[in-house]
């Protein structure tokens, strides 16, 4: 009889999982660089590069001025010329300042050179609301999903933060890697041995049979909390963590929806043209139409005001209510 051997795990903070992935990849490949504000001796705004500057020095880890457009552009140029830069953009809202280089140049470089050049770069950024107001809280990953040539990933656990970052640093095109501020305080187990998490592969975090709940990033915790709440009513949720938004793993979602017959999509960003809408449409193209509810932020900016912020962002009780309503349909 064969026993599946459970890999040895080490508990670590989210930031440590990122640090470890970057350290390993920088050690393996001298072309991996880090660019961004406060990434050097300071170790990153979230300490996600702690200790790396001492190891790899100022040539490979460069503090930049507040200049997102040029920083992403310089990274794209260095990527096109053979390097693998990781650019740290502190808040996802500031990514907009670098869209030209990222979207007009890096994402199109392979296409426009007929495969001659590519821009292997990782833009690491941080999404989500945590009391910082209308221009420091947004989740705009759905915008990025529609850009041909761009890959988008959003881990919800330190293990995936580690494995997705490693895959991102080896990817031969631009990747936007999205952390969530509210995930940082929670540690998690990561494999002790080197492990990559492939892109385009979702993960079922909780098995269930009544409804499929699909989410990513911090909203995975809300989804799992909601699943726990409705379990007391005898409702069984299949909870899927997308992990990778582009490419999307519709196989896993459609397979689940075939079993459960219902879909709830949950995200912290806007539902209009959102991640959930895209997931649902692609799923129903396979399964035919099924009862579906989408939940996201209210159609309003996310204030730093705690009452308004909380009103705007989905929470577990609201998701639980929506699950019950979906089952009652």
């Amino acid at each position: 009889m064969l026993y599946e051997q459970k890999p040895a795990m080490a508990r670590m903070f989210f930031r440590e999982a990122v640090t470890r992935a970057v350290r390993e990849e920088m050690t393996l490949d001298p072309h991996v660089l880090i660019l961004g504000q406060d990434v050097g001796a300071f170790g990153g705004s979230y300490r996600e590069f702690d200790g790396l500057y001492k190891i790899f020095g100022p040539d490979r880890i460069r503090d930049t001025p507040v200049a997102e457009a040029a920083t992403i552009g310089i990274a794209a140029g260095a990527a096109a010329a053979g390097y693998r830069p990781l650019v740290s953009i502190t808040y996802m809202d500031f990514l907009m300042l670098g869209f030209d280089a990222l979207i007009n140049y890096a994402a199109k470089l392979r296409y426009k050179t007929a495969g001659g050049l590519s821009a292997p770069m990782v833009v690491k950024t941080t999404a989500g609301a945590q009391g910082q107001g209308v221009a420091h809280s947004q989740c705009i990953e759905a915008w990025l999903m529609s850009v041909p040539g761009l890959r988008v990933v959003a881990p919800s656990t330190p293990a995936d933060a580690y494995g997705l970052m490693k895959t991102a640093l080896r990817c031969d095109g631009p990747v936007v890697y999205i952390d969530h501020k509210r995930l940082f305080p929670t540690p998690g187990d990561t494999p002790v041995t080197e492990t990559l998490v492939p892109f385009g592969k979702a993960c079922i975090r909780r098995d269930g049979s009544d409804v499929t709940v699909v989410s990513h990033g911090y909203m995975m915790r809300v989804a799992l909390d909601a699943a726990q709440i409705v379990a007391q009513d005898g409702i069984s949720c299949d909870v899927i963590d997308l992990r990778s938004l582009a490419p999307l793993d519709i196989d896993t979602v459609a397979g689940s929806v075939e079993r459960t017959g219902r879909l709830l999509t949950l995200e912290e960003g806007q539902v209009v043209c959102g991640v959930g809408t895209e997931v649902a449409i692609q799923t129903f193209e396979r399964t035919g139409p099924k009862p579906w509810t989408r939940i996201g932020a209210l159609p309003a900016p996310v204030s730093s005001n705690p009452v308004l912020e909380a009103a705007c962002i989905p929470d577990a009780p609201r998701v639980a209510d929506a699950i019950r309503a979906l089952l009652a349909r």
């Binding site: 140029g77 260095a78 990527a79 010329a81 007009n104 050049l117």
Partner: peptide, 25 residues
């Protein structure tokens, strides 16, 4: 000829990145 990029001003930072690669090399 590393290339053109027709967004006005858009290729300037790209060029600096290519220059950084030359510097590192």
């Amino acid at each position: 000829f590393f290339g053109a990029h027709a967004v006005v001003g858009g290729n300037i930072s790209i060029a600096a990145g290519v220059a950084m690669a030359r510097q590192l090399d």
